[in-house]
């Protein structure tokens, strides 16, 4: 179970929240000119990184407000939480301190077998 620090209510169990998937996906401005492929990219394709992931959460069983988080999907460690009107922290600020599940040299598609 992850603890999530809601920017409005404080730290709560993850089960109080719902995940909204990748953050900062902008609806294309020129939708009338988009071809099917580009429209499909907007509708169906989302980033799915192992490592740093910018995502949305909503405090469904609390204040019901949306906010953003940066989470390391290989350990579920939450690296940052920021409100919708705040700028996302840069990826570089986490990249050197990122933990891996079993101490592998880097987060990739790695698992324990590549541990040196």
């Amino acid at each position: 179970m992850i603890l999530i620090n809601c920017p409005y209510c404080g730290e709560r169990d993850q089960s109080e929240f719902s995940n909204g998937g990748e953050a900062h996906v902008a609806r294309p401005e020129n939708s009338e000119n988009l071809n099917d492929k580009d429209w499909g990219q907007y509708v169906f394709y989302r980033d799915n990184p192992k490592g740093i992931f910018y995502e949305r959460w909503v405090h469904s069983h609390g204040c019901r407000k949306w906010f953003n988080a940066v989470r390391n999907t290989s350990t579920d460690e939450i690296l940052a939480i920021y409100k919708l009107n705040e700028n996302p922290p840069s990826k570089e600020s986490f990249i050197n301190t990122l933990k891996t599940p079993s101490g592998e040299p880097k987060v990739g598609s790695g698992n324990f077998t590549v541990k040196k």
Partner: peptide, 13 residues
């Protein structure tokens, strides 16, 4: 689980 993750554990809830 209700969120993307590669942890091979999941939450107890």
């Amino acid at each position: 689980d209700g969120y993307n993750s590669f942890t091979q554990r999941g939450g107890y809830d």
